[in-house]
């Protein structure tokens, strides 16, 4: 990590340079330490799919996957992700195809305005990686840190339940099964 002196906002600060892999792509950046990870992703990396809803860590709209875990990107500083691997909603899409979780949200009507959706998807992605066959109550608990004002959550729960089935079927197809 290197530093270079500069003046911003009347305060002597050291911008910090770091490297990070985002959606599989290696990125280098030099930013002031106070830049929130959410702002870094949206503005510096021009990945606007990550949404900012409250900036105090409650709504979950800004959830992204950092090193396999869903985190609030409004509660991390960008400089903290040096060396990490980050997946945003833009990285979930597989080429021209929706990821099975996205597909399930589409089929089950798991979104209305869509603003909370990228954070929901990150939470769902982590849940299903840890627990491929969650109960409805486990889904409910997992997404209880993501506020949605449109759906009443019912179809989000259906979508995650359906995504779990899709992902398990995908695993069955690609993983050799014992006879």
């Amino acid at each position: 990590m290197t530093g270079n002196q500069f003046t911003e906002g009347g305060t002597n600060m050291t911008k910090v340079s770091f490297k990070v892999t985002v959606n599989g792509r290696a990125r280098e950046a030099t930013v002031p330490p106070r830049m929130l990870l959410s702002d870094f992703i949206r503005q510096e990396l021009s990945l606007p799919g990550t949404h900012v809803g409250c900036e105090h860590g409650v709504c979950g709209s800004c959830n992204v996957i950092v090193d396999g875990q869903a985190v609030r990107s409004c509660l991390m500083f960008a400089v903290q992700v040096e060396g990490s691997e980050i997946t945003t909603v833009e990285g979930l899409t597989q080429g021209d195809a929706l990821h099975p979780i996205q597909q399930a949200f589409w089929e089950e009507h798991g979104l209305q305005c869509g603003f909370c959706t990228p954070g929901m998807l990150a939470t769902a992605q982590e849940l299903l990686a840890q627990n491929p066959d969650p109960t409805d109550d486990e889904i409910r608990e997992a997404i209880s840190g993501n506020l949605c004002r449109c759906t009443g959550y019912e179809f989000i729960i259906s979508a995650i339940r359906s995504a779990a089935v899709k992902l398990r079927e995908t695993d069955t197809e690609t993983t050799p099964q014992p006879v």
């Binding site: 949206r42 606007p48 909603v89 833009e90 899409t93 929706l98 589409w106 979104l111 869509g114 998807l121």
Partner: peptide, 21 residues
């Protein structure tokens, strides 16, 4: 019919285009 929404693929892929974008 409960047709899948026309609006969703672009929103689901993070390309909805909200005001802060």
């Amino acid at each position: 019919q409960s047709m899948k929404r026309v609006e969703d693929p672009r929103i689901l892929s993070g390309k909805g285009g909200y005001i802060d974008d």
